[in-house]
């Protein structure tokens, strides 16, 4: 059983600038209004663990499961009877860079955690993608 929601939009930001936002711990809390803090080793590696703290909730441990520079990034958080994943991907199109953030829940209790946990996260995806790309553009303008 898989429960999945995603949000995609086009941007003129470069893959490098978006990748930098995805792999810099300090940028995560800037790009995600729900997040208070993120820590993980830089540069991140598949299998490396990190920690995220949402506002008003306990810290959660996560593990990177995919890191393809300029293409895709994913990490997962374990839930009882389910796995919560955050697939990020980007691809160049004729109309610009297409950036997708998704929330995916797999496992026997995915149907339970989808409405309980996934829906709220999914509602925040558009704002996060907009902030990631807006801040990537700002980084580009600043020459970072």
């Amino acid at each position: 059983m898989t429960w999945r929601r995603e949000y995609t939009h086009l941007t003129t930001a470069t893959p490098e600038a978006v990748w930098k936002r995805w792999t810099t711990p300090a940028d995560w809390a800037v790009d995600d209004p729900d997040l208070r803090e993120a820590t993980f080793p830089v540069p991140p590696r598949v299998g490396a663990a990190g920690r995220v703290v949402n506002h008003g909730t306990p810290a959660q441990r996560f593990v990177f499961t995919e890191l393809q520079p300029g293409v895709a990034m994913n990490f997962r958080i374990g839930l009882p009877g389910a796995v919560l994943s955050f697939p990020h991907s980007m691809r160049q199109t004729a109309n610009g860079l297409s950036v997708t953030h998704a929330v995916e829940i797999t496992g026997p209790l995915a149907a339970v955690f989808g409405p309980l946990v996934g829906r709220k996260i999914a509602a925040g995806l558009p704002a996060v993608v907009r902030l990631v790309t807006t801040n990537a553009l700002a980084d580009m303008a600043a020459g970072e």
């Binding site: 939009h9 086009l10 109309n95 610009g96 553009l137």
Partner: peptide, 12 residues
């Protein structure tokens, strides 16, 4: 946002 980015987002 710059015009090309506004256009990209609206078309999205």
């Amino acid at each position: 946002l710059p015009e090309p980015e506004r256009r990209a987002r609206v078309l999205s």
